[in-house]
Simulated assay, not measured.
Amino acid sequence: MTTQSTSSLLRWLIALSCLLPFLASPVEAQQLPAPRDTSFTVYSAFIKAKKNNPAISVARPTLPSTVQAKMNLTYCTIGNRNLQLDIFRPIANRKKGYPAVLFIHGGGWRSGDRLQHVPMAQQLAAVGYVTVTAEYRLSTEAVYPAAVMDLKAAIRWMRANAKAYAIDTTKIAVWGFSAGGQLAALLGTTNDDKTLEGDACYPSHSSSVQAIVDVDGTLAFIHPESGEGNDSKGPSAATYWFGASKTEKPELWHQAGALNHVTGATPPIVFINSSVDRMHAGREDMIKKLDAFHIYHEVHSFPDAPHTFPLFNPWFEPTLKYTVAFLNKVFKVK
């Protein structure tokens, strides 16, 4: 064998040795991230909403000078998947820490992006909150309850890293829009529910939250007011998320409705809603349950607003004000 042939053979063997671990590894470890569904973006929502609201504009306030940002932090690794978040906090140090808020984006559990609520998170940080915008696995990647478990892991991460980011671990809230509102309400009503907890990251820390901001998120999937699960023209967004229709696995659809988990331990909640009633299905029934347990709640509505109102002016600022006023009240922030 010539020297050149020996060299070529050696290179081939080295290349093969690099591939062997992947060839021998489980199928799950070889999977690439699912293609991202970009059907719901701020731009697409703007074009749609502008048809009936020509005066609106995308809310893009600048990052306040009093706020520090850290982007693209991994909060949990599941298999070979790194779940990431962004965090915003007041630059000034505070010995006892600041109340914190986890922001959850919408998009039908299938689309959307955590960056969509960075403007709101930044503005809330400017008034004395540590805010986090986290991604979670969408239905193109993992079905229910993966997203719930991911977000509970994000809350555990916040507690595990409380000292580094000046978080008061006794005052953590969730803020969610649309599908994110549904998730926020479910997270808050299932504090300490082991069936939805997951144990992928920081299992020694609590995922409990002390306040809920539900911005146009459904409270019940199987309910007279709900529009979720209509598969007459093909699988609905919720059907994709659950991996089954509501007639096939109604127990999952019931489990995901915050309405079905209200107890005396449910934290205070504010509902901030558009004019689209089906987006907050189950709200009145939930309020009846909250009243029975004497749990504090607020309702704020924008009668002429489209579903995507928190992304746009003129609704961005009043949504922020309702959020701040509610959180200041329940967390006793002066």
Rank of each mutant, 00 (worst) to 15 (best):
T3F: 14
S5Y: 12
S8L: 14
L9E: 13
R11T: 12
I14F: 14
P21V: 14
E28T: 14
T38P: 00
Y43S: 13
I47P: 00
N53K: 10
P54E: 02
P54Q: 03
S57Q: 15
P64I: 12
Q68V: 11
A69W: 02
M71V: 14
L73D: 02
Y75V: 13
Y75H: 07
T77M: 08
G79L: 14
N80S: 11
N80H: 13
R81W: 14
Q84M: 10
Q84C: 06
Q84E: 08
F88P: 01
R89Q: 15
A92G: 00
P99R: 02
L102G: 04
G107N: 06
R110M: 13
S111V: 13
S111P: 08
V118M: 03
P119L: 08
A121T: 11
Q123H: 09
A126V: 12
V127D: 07
V132C: 03
V132G: 00
T133H: 02
A134C: 09
L138T: 15
L138A: 10
T140R: 07
Y144H: 10
V148D: 00
K152S: 10
A153Q: 06
A154L: 09
R156P: 02
R159A: 11
A162P: 03
A164T: 15
A179M: 07
L183F: 09
L183P: 01
A184I: 10
T190I: 10
T190G: 02
N191G: 05
Y202I: 04
H205F: 15
H205C: 08
D214N: 15
V215T: 09
D216S: 15
G217H: 04
T218S: 06
I222G: 00
S226E: 10
S226D: 11
E228Y: 13
G229M: 06
D231M: 01
D231K: 01
A237Y: 12
T239E: 04
T239V: 06
Y240N: 11
Y240M: 10
A244H: 12
A244W: 09
S245W: 04
H254T: 14
G257Q: 08
A258I: 09
A258N: 06
A258V: 10
V262D: 02
P267G: 05
V270D: 01
N273D: 15
S275A: 15
V276S: 07
M279E: 11
D285Y: 10
M286V: 03
K289P: 07
F293S: 06
H297R: 08
V299M: 08
H300G: 05
F302S: 01
F309Q: 03
F309Y: 11
E317F: 03
E317H: 05
Y322R: 07
Y322C: 05
T323F: 05
A325Y: 12
F326L: 10
L327K: 02
N328S: 05
K329M: 03
K332G: 03
K332P: 00
K332R: 11
